Computed example of a mutant assay.
Amino acid sequence: MGEPLRLIVGLGNPGRKYDQTRHNAGFWLVDELVRRYRGQWRIESRFLGEVARITFDDGADVWLLKPATYMNKSGQSVAALAAFYKIKPAEMTVAHDEIDLPPGDVRFKFGGGHGGHNGLRDIFSHLGRDFWRVRLGVGHPGHRDQVIDYVLGRPGRDEQMLIDACVEKAADQLPRLVAGDSERAMHALHSR
Rank of each mutant, 00 (worst) to 15 (best):
F47E: 01
H96E: 00
R157P: 13
H126C: 13
R107E: 13
G156F: 01
V106D: 05
L189D: 12
K66M: 02
W132K: 08
E44M: 10
L48R: 15
A165Q: 15
D31W: 00
V51H: 07
D105E: 15
G113K: 02
L5G: 07
V167D: 01
H96C: 08
S182I: 01
I123H: 08
I87D: 11
S74Q: 06
D58E: 13
L120A: 03
Q76T: 14
G128I: 08
E159R: 07
G59V: 10
D31H: 00
F108Q: 04
R42E: 04
I99K: 00
I43A: 12
K73T: 13
C166I: 12
F84M: 04
H190Y: 09
A79F: 02
D181W: 01
V178P: 11
D61R: 14
I8L: 15
A171T: 07
R22F: 05
V134C: 13
V9D: 03
D172P: 00
S182Q: 12
G12S: 04
A90N: 07
L33C: 06
R53C: 09
P175V: 11
A60R: 12
G112Y: 05
G49P: 06
A80W: 01
Q20E: 12
F108S: 09
G137S: 11
A68M: 15
N118H: 14
H190A: 11
D19P: 00
L174H: 03
A165T: 12
G49N: 06
A80G: 09
G75D: 09
Q76I: 13
R107I: 12
P141A: 11
V9H: 01
Q76A: 15
F110V: 12
E91K: 05
M186E: 09
Q146L: 14
P89V: 13
R144I: 04
D61E: 15
G115D: 05
D105M: 12
G12W: 00
N72D: 13
L5A: 10
H126Q: 14
V178H: 02
T21N: 13
F108K: 05
K73C: 14
L152Q: 02
F131W: 07
K109H: 06
V134E: 03
A25N: 01
V51K: 05
S191E: 15
T69D: 09
G75N: 10
R184G: 14
Y70I: 10
E44F: 02
L33F: 06
I123F: 09
R144W: 02
I8M: 10
Y70G: 03
I54E: 04
G10R: 04
E168Y: 00
V78F: 07
W41S: 07
I54F: 02
E183G: 10
D61S: 14
L174D: 03
G156S: 13
V78A: 07
I43G: 00
G49Q: 07
A60L: 05
W63L: 14
R144L: 01
V167E: 00
F47K: 03
A80F: 01
I123T: 12
H190G: 11
G26A: 08
I163N: 04
V167G: 05
V138W: 00
F84D: 08
D145Q: 13
I8A: 15
H187P: 00
T93N: 01
R6V: 06
G26K: 04
R129S: 15
L174P: 08
D149T: 15
H140I: 02
D97N: 04
K86A: 14
I123W: 08
G75E: 11
E32I: 02
N24V: 07
R121H: 08
Y37Q: 01
N72G: 10
Y85V: 06
R36N: 06
L33R: 03
I54N: 03
